[in-house]
Design a protein around this nucleic acid. Structure first.
Lengths: 176, 176
DNA sequence: CGTCTTGGTTCGGTCAATGAACCATGAGGC
DNA sequence: GCCTCATGGTTCATTGACCGAACCAAGACG
């Protein structure tokens, strides 16, 4: 039985990469992992993905060593990006940049700030102030200026309504 | 009726980008367009994609202004990347880089050379000699060293068995 | 002991992908 | 003109992935 996800006969690293992360939802899960999302229910609530599909994708990503699954002391499973997963940041950023350039005009969107110098990330991934290309651990995602606080009720949307360092866990938000 | 390709409710440029180029085959078509593939039959032969799906994807990509369709004097349709499509190079490159880093060990793969200085492109997209990050128009794709000339019979594979500048049309290969 | 949360699995229905067959147009040979 | 082939599709039946809703098991909590 051949794998259903396979692009047959493509001796190409792009095809190989897309076999792993090219399925529906997969890169959005990775994006949320960069935001610090780690729990099944938070992925579920933020993405609106069917549970069965989320189970499948999390198993695939952990099986490929992109996410690491740890059962926390509380008994809840937690998922976090491995080094291999964090190497997907250029891909995630390039999609963000392209989507923002060609489809972001109708609505302003989140921006990314370089932790050290406070500069804003430009389309090419460089910090607008100091010119370096920061990795995800050096970035803070900022809400768009006129973000309505009531945009969405889920924990992740609430956590991202204030500046949030990438790769740091989504904190429990105190009831307002 | 909601669009089947939509990620509902995601106010995010990444989700927006994936709605357009996140479907199966789409980014491989874009990759081939960077290689200079322009004809329906060449995409078909190189990718092994079902005709109906290729029709659908080419219509989608031209509808979104990523590819431009021109009916050549010969009567054949030709597809080429627009400026918006060429802005997908960072995404394509990042996937190539990630796939090569984590899944390329079993088999060496194509490398990319910077036209000006001849340096080889590193994983971060920089030219190994001069340090700039070249765009696709400044790159040449090189076959892997021990490439068997008989690897695949289709025109595109043959054209890529010798060094080939990106974005230049796949030339007719003279019979050997 | 009953209820709630978490993290799933199962199931029927729907929709997209697949491969094979069919078709329309235009070019070239004769 | 007539036949044939290449190109660029469309149509169709089958398969498989995605979907939402329902169900389930284990642990926390009262």
């Amino acid at each position: 039985m051949t794998l259903p996800r396979e692009y047959l006969g493509q001796d190409c690293p792009i095809a190989r990469a897309l076999e792993i992360i090219g399925e529906r939802w997969t890169l959005l899960i990775v994006r949320d992992a960069f935001y610090g999302v780690s729990r099944f229910s938070d992925f579920r609530d933020h993405l609106g993905i069917p549970r069965a599909v989320l189970t499948d994708r999390l198993n695939l990503l952990t099986g490929q060593g992109i996410l690491a699954r740890v059962t926390a002391a509380s008994g809840r499973d937690e998922y976090s990006l491995t080094a291999k997963g964090r190497r997907l940041w250029p891909t995630v950023w390039s999609l963000n940049s392209w989507g923002n350039e060609f489809y972001g005009s109708d609505r302003p969107c989140r921006t990314y700030a370089h932790n050290g110098c406070g500069g804003t990330l430009a389309a090419d991934g460089r910090c607008g102030s100091c010119g370096v290309i920061p990795g995800p651990a050096e970035l803070t995602v900022l809400p768009w200026p006129d973000a309505p606080a009531t945009s969405k009720p889920d924990l992740v949307s609430q956590a991202l309504s204030v500046p949030h360092k990438l790769l740091t866990p989504i904190a429990e938000v105190a009831a307002s």
